[in-house]
Write a protein that binds this DNA or RNA. Structure first.
Length: 490
DNA sequence: GCCAACGGAATATTTTAGAT
DNA sequence: ATCTAAAATATTCCGTTGGC
């Protein structure tokens, strides 16, 4: 951490002005990085100025690894593991005194909150390093050094990785794993086990050298969690992923793992990471299974808490294929579509208990009939956006709760639940002024008016096959009418 | 008709950026 | 260093769909 005014920060590309230049150097490329340019260190959470000064004073090195450099491999610690555990325990204990300021437990990029993950919640594998696996590939559950050490801290029996790695089957898996891992981005390569750097109690990640994560003994053990998870894995411990694009209900994509559990897309992070959630979701004890996907790589964030399913993958793929075929051949009878597919699947899976053809045919029919109604002639062929004509008929005075109406309408596609709120009201016979309960009558009347206008809008939408529409605020409506724009069904 | 299997929205929690 | 607001992420709730 020497001062160097000529150098340029490899993160922000700016210099190091001022008398006191605080920076750290990448252990690999030696490039300087501002203290504040360290990922997650805007507020000194990773390396505060005070800590920096203290470390400088004690001539301590801060092992920073910039994102441009290849990840430093995780050290092999199979040999003399207990000695290392003792060593790390000493370090942790000492950290309460002299090293308290310098010893910050920072987890990898997938764990953004150092404070939170110091004591991980029992329901997650927060301290597990998550192995990424490619799509339609597989992954051996890995007992990483930090996991073993975490178990050791929790007072649990050590799990020997020697035996696992040395067995013929595991050796095979390892080579397969290595081939997969070779394709991963550097920042994700947690699980490599080269022979270099033996006996180091520190783990180097893409960011920093840091002490191994510990776990309070009062919390459920990682070993127990993994043991439960391992029992859910296939026999050889290989995790396989497969995405079926339209296997879900409403033709949503489904991720299927090697235990035949199906997962649906939960949400997509801003950085493009897709989060998949196990589809087993009864109201009582829904499964916690959670998988992240970056590109075509997958990682388990939460293990499943549900039981594996039998032939689920075969069934969902078959159903998806049948529905897809039915959509492409709308005029063919469902039974005719389904039966050959079932025979074909049965040929490839002799142990499969075939789905009832009638059941599948009914599902196919449902899908087909919906599609037939959706494929009504489109008078706005070729145009995805258009301006509503007769805008005056679509306008609403503000006093009739236009905002609420606008919100309801803009969220509506072709189907709506609005009519499910059966509202019986005889507009013609009602006399607002002669009612016993005038306030309530006025309220009902207003609601009825709203519904009538809404139905009028909906009718319009159907007529023009509008998927959704919204008010065009860019127009200055001088005549008091609101302008609407719509999106036509393709 | 019941209930599991989804799927989406609402809500809660955490993180980050910016101001002071 | 602290506070606040906004954004991002995670969790929960609830409605709909589909199979039996």
């Amino acid at each position: 951490m020497a001062q160097t005014a000529e150098k340029v920060c490899i993160v922000c590309n700016s210099g190091f002005p001022g008398r006191v230049i605080q920076f750290v150097s990448c252990v690999d490329c030696k490039g300087p990085v501002h203290l504040t340019c360290i990922p997650g260190n805007k507020r000194g959470k990773v390396l505060s100025k005070a800590t920096y000064v203290l470390m400088n004073k004690n001539n301590e090195a801060f092992f920073y690894k910039c994102s441009k450099c290849p990840t430093v491999p995780v050290p092999e610690i199979r040999v003399n593991l207990m000695a290392q555990v003792t060593e790390v325990v000493d370090v942790v204990e000492n950290s309460r005194t002299t090293l308290a300021a310098t010893f910050k437990l920072i987890l990898g990029p997938l764990h953004s909150s150092p404070k939170k993950d110091l004591h991980p919640k029992p329901r997650t594998d927060a301290t597990d390093i998550i192995p990424f696996t490619p799509i339609d590939g597989d992954c051996r559950p890995i007992i990483t050094p930090e996991i073993e050490l975490a178990d050791a801290f929790a007072g649990l029996p050590m799990i020997s990785t020697n035996e696992e790695v040395n067995s013929p089957m595991e050796q095979g898996s390892n080579s397969l794993l290595e081939r997969q891992m070779a394709t991963l981005e550097d920042s994700e390569r947690y699980n490599e086990r080269p022979s270099a750097q033996p006996n180091s109690p520190m783990e180097l990640t893409s960011f920093f050298a840091r002490p191994v994560a510990t776990q309070e003994s009062s919390l459920p053990s990682l070993a127990q969690e993994r043991s439960r998870d391992r029992s859910n894995r296939s026999i050889n411990g290989i995790r396989k992923w497969h995405i079926e694009p339209a296997a879900g209900k409403r033709l949503k994509p489904m991720l299927i793992d090697d235990t035949d559990r199906g997962l649906g897309i939960r949400y997509t992070r801003k950085n493009g990471t897709v989060m998949w959630r196990c589809n087993f979701r009864p109201k009582k004890n829904p499964c916690h299974g959670l998988v992240s996907q970056i590109g075509d790589k997958f990682a388990e964030h939460h293990p499943h808490s549900c039981n594996p399913k039998s032939h689920h993958k075969v069934n969902v793929i078959l159903a998806a294929e049948a529905k897809k075929y039915a959509l492409d051949h709308l005029n063919e009878p469902a039974q005719k579509v389904v039966e050959p597919l079932i025979v074909k699947v049965l040929d490839g899976n002799p142990n499969w208990n075939p789905i009832n053809p009638t059941t599948l045919a009914r599902a196919v029919n449902r899908r087909g009939s919906r599609c037939r109604s959706e494929k009504a002639p489109n008078i706005h062929d070729g145009r995805t956006n258009f301006r509503f004509e007769n805008c005056s008929k679509m306008s609403y005075p503000e006093k009739l709760d236009g905002k609420q109406l606008l919100k309801a309408v803009s969220e509506v596609y072709c189907e709506t639940n609005f009519l499910n709120e059966a509202f019986c009201y005889d507009d013609d016979k009602d006399d607002l002024n002669n009612s016993n309960n005038t306030q309530q009558r006025k309220k009902d009347h207003s609601k009825f008016q709203l519904q009538k206008r809404y139905l009028n809008v909906r009718q319009k939408m159907r007529k023009y096959h509008v998927q959704r529409y919204f008010r065009n605020d860019s127009q200055n409506n001088t005549d008091g009418n609101e302008e609407w724009e719509g999106t036509v069904c393709k």
